[in-house]
Design a protein around this nucleic acid. Structure first.
Lengths: 215, 215
DNA sequence: ATAATGAATTTTGTATGCAAATTCAAATCC
DNA sequence: GGATTTGAATTTGCATACAAAATTCATTAT
């Protein structure tokens, strides 16, 4: 019975963390931008205490930079950061893909196929925003498939840091086509439950993604 | 000139984060233990504000559990947590070992040899505490060697969660001997700058470590 | 004796207050 | 005119205050 579930009382600081995290990872606040506590407090209608707690958490996630006595800024993403993060994402997604092949239900894999078809539709239509979103959903679904909450959380934190960079990057038509094909191959490997191949393809896919982001 | 370096003004909450993190990862506070804010405030001589900010950060690192309106407890480590964390640590340390082989200076590798000899000395002497500490230092030195700050930070956060478990586990004499031998092999691979082999050996070493913790 | 009730106490979550540091700009000097 | 100084206005960091929730504990009812 749903009515017997514990009522989720969202704490203010928790809500603020989520709102701010979305704001930053979705790219609505440019990197390097100063975060004014007072202004944000008024915008959200909360006092400085929960806001500052949220900023500390986001700083530990690497989304904001805290400078003593100077407050918070949205963290910048350097080329070096991308060089650091992508090898880790490759390792993590490879690991997740391998586990997902072993653990995902057939139904979950069919759902992945639905997403893939949907994404190919966005590609055909040339809808970059929708493509990007479905792409994101596919990567997350594979991660969910590994059923390792720690891996999911670790990946999410790192992926969040570079999501903005991926938003901004506009792929060439050739690269876009290639990316869709890579995704198709990944899905075949998953449907065949070939863990090693899935891992390998995911790593290559991410490696290529890194190259398209290179400035 | 040292006198011209910026004076590092440690923020209170940052200091509290470090102190509390050590307290928990070193196992001085048992998992599940309730964290009383008032008591900790008095012990550290700080007010609740910086302490609570620190707790939020540690919660996002997975070291403490925050329950709405009920405060903080030291996070428990379940077998399932270990099953989740170790595969990730294997992937991360493998990645770090591979990079370290390519990037570490000869001097740094010689320093690693010093640590290895030191650790073998502790093994001969049967000094588990000292062995554990040097062991830790070796793993950290390899991580440092990869020169990937993001990888170092990600690894540190995950390793911190299971450090307590490793403290508690007492290896059998046979397993202890094997662990020392594994470390020797890892160092040979690093000295030969054989990245692939180093990665492989590190993953196996961690996999074995996981097995000794089981039960 | 045990369980249930509810008032007193403690603890938590958020807001506010205050001192120190930083920023910005007008005023000063070269 | 441009650089430098100085002081008011912000802004930050920490402490404290207060309301809501949870816990404790004595009291009552079964």
């Amino acid at each position: 019975m749903e009515s017997l579930q514990p009522i989720k009382r969202a704490s203010l600081h928790g809500t603020v963390v989520e709102r701010l995290r979305d704001l930053i990872t979705e790219g609505h606040v440019p990197p390097g931008e100063k975060i004014n506590e007072k202004a944000l407090c008024e915008a959200y209608g909360v006092s400085r205490t929960p806001l500052r707690e949220a900023l500390k958490v986001l700083a530990s996630e690497g989304l904001v930079t805290l400078t003593p006595n100077r407050g918070a800024t949205v963290a910048e993403i350097t080329e070096r950061d991308l060089d650091e993060v992508f090898p880790i994402l490759m390792a993590l997604e490879g690991l997740a893909g391998e586990a997902a092949c072993a653990r995902m239900s057939d139904a979950a894999i069919r759902q992945l196929r639905v997403l893939q078809d949907e994404m190919e539709g966005h590609y055909e239509a040339g809808d970059r925003a929708a493509y990007f979103q479905t792409n994101q959903a596919i990567h997350e679904a594979i991660l969910e498939g590994c059923e390792n909450q720690t891996l999911i959380a670790t990946h999410r934190a790192l992926a969040g840091r570079v999501r903005r960079a991926r938003y901004l990057a506009n792929m060439s038509p050739a690269r876009w086509k290639q990316a869709v094909e890579e995704h198709a191959a990944i899905l075949w490997a998953i449907e065949a439950r070939d863990g090693a191949r899935t891992a390998q393809l995911l790593r290559e896919h991410l490696s290529n993604k890194r190259e398209t982001l290179r400035g």
